[in-house]
């Protein structure tokens, strides 16, 4: 009788603990974890995800990866962009396993490709790693349908790299040009903020050669910047690390999320890029569209210097 009472007491305590943990962790609290897609999800579109600053190997990174897998089931993105800090800390073979291969095992199994850029925590020899698809280069580009993707190594923007980037962007006739690298050149982050040194050399190239979207990491949160000189900037650096409450909202910020980990889903259909930012627990924290700069450029016949695009897109004066 006495033992039964003790047993019941322990069962009660165990039940309360499990309930408490579930209540505290929204991921466990979900009846049925799912991914709500707010993108067109068209069959022939270019669909991809973004996971920056992912490589911690921690439980929260695994949560993000699990959520990405859930989204992949309903929104079958073909590849993932990693704007740096792909592996934190040591980079022994076991680290590649625990900080990348195991968390993203389901996506790798589903033949989702990862394209990495180098962050300040990354050994440049990651460029040879089969799953990062960097072609053995610290900076490289690839094409998917109407989109040209350019990956840069922002920790070491040598004159040689700048020359290469200019040549790549100038030579591309793709409708969409998306550049991704680690350090954001526009950011409201309290810890780092905008990298003005990089902005000085990169922004003129982006403007001149029609870059539409720039994706960075480094800041451990999500932020969408109001279009700057017609270019939309995203920071998506919270797939593994989080710097809680670090967005110091400025005039730059169009939307932000800094209370939990997150990743992005993106779809390009014709002249429109659709984006959705999703938290570790599956909440949509931002979504919207970007129009290709090429599509917005007035034709020679109907060119009017109205500046209406700037107003429409909420660009800072």
């Amino acid at each position: 009788m006495k033992y039964a009472r003790v047993f019941n007491f322990f069962v009660l305590i165990l039940g309360i603990s499990v309930w408490g943990a579930a209540a505290a962790d929204p991921l466990l609290a979900q009846d049925e974890p799912r991914c709500e897609i707010r993108l067109p999800n068209e069959k022939d579109s270019i669909r991809f995800a973004v996971a920056g600053d992912a490589g911690t190997g921690g439980s929260k990174q695994r949560d993000v990866a699990r959520q990405m897998t859930l989204c992949h089931a309903v929104f079958p993105f073909e590849f993932v962009l990693m704007p740096g800090d792909n592996l934190y800390g040591s980079e022994k073979p076991k680290d590649y396993r625990t900080k990348f291969e195991e968390p993203f095992a389901d996506l790798l199994k589903a033949e989702v490709k990862f394209y990495a850029a180098l962050g300040n925590h990354d050994n440049p020899e990651q460029r040879f790693y089969k799953n990062f698809n960097m072609e053995g280069e610290r900076y490289y580009s690839f094409e998917k349908g109407p989109v040209q993707f350019v990956a840069l190594d922002s920790t070491y923007m040598s004159p040689e790299q700048l020359e290469w980037a200019e040549k790549e962007l100038r030579g591309s006739n793709k409708k969409w040009k998306i550049v991704f690298f680690h350090h954001p050149i526009y950011s409201s982050g309290g810890r780092h903020g905008s990298d003005l040194e990089l902005r000085k050399v990169l922004e003129p190239l982006f403007v001149q050669y029609g870059v539409d979207v720039v994706i960075a990491g480094h800041e451990h949160f999500y932020e969408r910047i109001r279009p700057q000189k017609e270019i939309t900037y995203f920071t998506s650096g919270a797939a593994g690390k989080l710097r809680k409450g670090n967005v110091e909202k400025t005039d730059l910020t169009a939307a932000s999320f800094d209370t939990d980990r997150s990743f992005m889903l993106i779809e390009v259909t014709g002249d429109t890029l659709h984006f959705q930012s999703v938290s570790r627990t599956g909440q949509t924290v931002d979504s919207g569209t970007v129009t290709a700069r090429e599509a917005e450029r007035p034709k020679a016949a109907d060119a009017k210097p109205t500046g209406s695009n700037r107003e429409k897109r909420g660009e800072n004066p």
Partner: peptide
Amino acid sequence: LKDKEGAE
């Protein structure tokens, strides 16, 4: 080293 190597 080729451009598709394993971590080891």
